[in-house]
């Protein structure tokens, strides 16, 4: 990764743009959620998935409230807290708290139950809930969480997830790689896809970006396929972006 000369325009031809205000929205009082793809009562046949990326929910949970005990199977479930503390309990005996800078992963496999609550009494918890179709069914359920060093994403792309247990970040049962970058205004960097045939879905956490020639604002999503590399430029201070490289076929 480097600060690249961005004067040469990169034209992206195979892409889908999901502007933030076109996402599905659910307000349950205690939970406000924006769905990039069809989820629960939001059903849009045009918004089913991007490759094996099936769910991208942008959740805000009120103080002390949360998702009661509920089941999952055959799915790789990743939670990324953005603000506040989220208390996790599951049927494997884990009771933990995740906070900003952490990443949590569950391989639901043959079946798990879990709950997620806002541990805070005085603030919302905001987090991303991401579901990836697994590359094998009926795996043994597993849970993991790690704390990331936030300094490692300043003007670079920090790997937070991969298919490899020995690699940086958490790992899942899928040929997917996630990175987060927090870039200064005007800073450009590139991302080379790791596996042929994969696509990349960029989701803006904060600020404004340009990918190729496509402008993105906060909470916009951009899926690109048939590409080997993308160039990302921040157009505002402390802009933060999540990149999800995923297989395009299940």
């Amino acid at each position: 990764m480097e600060n690249k000369d961005s004067t040469k325009e990169e034209v992206i031809t195979n892409y889908i743009l999901h502007k933030a205000n076109t996402r599905g929205h659910a307000n349950h009082g205690w939970l406000e959620s924006y769905h990039t793809f069809s989820f629960a009562n939001y059903h849009n046949p045009e918004r089913m998935n991007f490759g094996v990326l099936r769910v991208l929910n942008d959740d805000r949970v009120n103080q002390g409230m949360g998702f009661g005990k509920h089941p999952h199977d055959d799915m790789e479930i990743i939670s990324i807290p953005l603000e506040g503390d989220l208390e996790h309990q599951d049927s494997m005996g884990n009771t933990t708290v995740i906070k900003e800078g952490d990443i949590q992963v569950m391989s639901a496999g043959t079946g798990i139950f879990h709950s997620e609550y806002n541990k805070n009494k005085d603030q919302l918890v905001k987090f991303l809930q991401i579901w990836i179709y697994p590359n094998q069914k009926n795996v043994t359920p597993r849970y993991d969480q790690i704390t990331l060093d936030l300094k490692d994403r300043h003007n670079k792309l920090q790997q937070i997830l991969s298919p490899n247990p020995e690699d940086a970040g958490v790992w899942i049962h899928q040929d997917a790689w996630f990175h987060i970058g927090k870039l200064d205004n005007g800073f450009s960097t590139s991302y080379q896809l790791k596996k042929a045939g994969n696509g990349i879905y960029a989701f803006v956490l904060k600020g404004d970006f340009t990918i190729g020639t496509i402008a993105l604002n906060e909470r916009d999503g951009l899926g690109i396929w048939d590409t080997n590399e993308i160039t990302i430029t921040a157009n505002s201070a402390d802009a933060e972006i999540l990149l999800m490289e995923v297989p395009m076929k299940l």
Partner: peptide
């Protein structure tokens, strides 16, 4: 997939 309410409705409607 998913074992709960998240994807069920979409899977059936689709």
């Amino acid at each position: 997939y998913g074992g709960g309410s998240g994807l069920l409705k979409s899977e059936i409607l689709l």
